[in-house]
Write a protein that binds this DNA or RNA. Sequence first.
DNA 1: TACAACCTGACAAACGTTTGTTCAACACAT
DNA 2: ATGTGTTGAACAAACGTTTGTCAGGTTGTA
Lengths: 224, 224
Amino acid sequence: MQVAATAVGGGLPVPPMEFCQLKATETIRPADDPHTRNKRQQILEAAARQFSACGFHGANMRDVAAAAGVLAGSIYYHFESKDALFVAVHGAAIDMMTNAVRAAVAGIADPWDRLEEAAAAHCEALNGDSAFVGVIAPIFPVTIGALRSQLTAQRDAYESMFSDLIGKLELEADIDPKIFRLHVLTALNGTKFWYGPGGMAPSEIGRQLIRMLRRRATRDPGIV
Amino acid sequence: MQVAATAVGGGLPVPPMEFCQLKATETIRPADDPHTRNKRQQILEAAARQFSACGFHGANMRDVAAAAGVLAGSIYYHFESKDALFVAVHGAAIDMMTNAVRAAVAGIADPWDRLEEAAAAHCEALNGDSAFVGVIAPIFPVTIGALRSQLTAQRDAYESMFSDLIGKLELEADIDPKIFRLHVLTALNGTKFWYGPGGMAPSEIGRQLIRMLRRRATRDPGIV
DNA sequence: TACAACCTGACAAACGTTTGTTCAACACAT
DNA sequence: ATGTGTTGAACAAACGTTTGTCAGGTTGTA
């Protein structure tokens, strides 16, 4: 299936994107690079935008196709099904976020600092300009049923990074690391639904969350 | 279309997992109170279950009807449209949660205690046995577009309760109360997606979150 | 060089199903 | 007999998917 972790356009231009209906209106060639670019990649990106804005059920293949400058049927040359397309987008998003977080914590020693950077990177990627990661958060609603196992498999590796990060924290005894991780991750993902440009920067929002927890949650006797 | 396990390149066979499909299988009378009870109410409850499990787009009127022991057409006697049905469910859910939270904080003086109880009540209602509140969390994905303004209007009153609660906290200067509220609320709502019976009780999960934040976030000189 | 065979990516139209919704007819109280 | 509630069939639109086709490029062979 080769999810194409590959470089899935980190910084490509994201269209106006207002809510759901990015309707099929215009089939304009994305002046960007007309035909040279892999059609598969364009479909993947269009699908990311559509899924991200409308959710799985809300998005439809025709709009995805139109946004990619292709007819609906053509998608099936590259992807087996709508399900498979979604899994591919989701996988690409996870890969991007994994890389972002890994890069962010590299070279940092202090466990809390590492978590803070990870949170900042997560938040920034999630609310950044790549449509891909947009599918990460809204998936929760298990609307998808049959896909669930595949998606959780993709997520597991990512979330285990946070498990490791949190495992190094030496939390106080009354704090369950698992609950801690889940609360942090869901709060971080939740930003996708309320963050808007003009306010605090995404990375700063992520940092704030960790700072809110930092002093309280540590058992460092010098601080508490 | 039969999604089935159909490969999806990933290879792994997808388990039955009938998450969404609370399919129309059984039309059993909800022994509860067969026909005395308002049919409208039964439809409302069935819709809550369906929307909660499948999301807005994922749920369909026929399954809702079957779950309510009714035919699809009958719904339209009580509700104008699928949209209206959803708004009704959402409104009922907000009402229930508002009552739960209001009752939980009644008679408690300390601001942090009040917030803790509110969080516990929110979490408990959200993961409790009433299907209604299930629609609260997954709505975030703005999948719904046109309904958005109606839903946010319903939410505003509820969220302002938390604003008030948090406004009384006297947070440290470097903590933005709005960010604080949003993080708390989204983390709380997030429990809907990972909470499972057998683990920590929902109310305790909610409490834990506030306790994680409590000491750090206060400027009480006696503690920090 | 020439030509046939094949592969690739995409097209356009259609298929069968599911969806939200409507509506005339019907039941059964009052 | 009137009104309230329900039915069951039907509808048009939208959906995911399948199909048959095709131009253009690449490869293999003579």
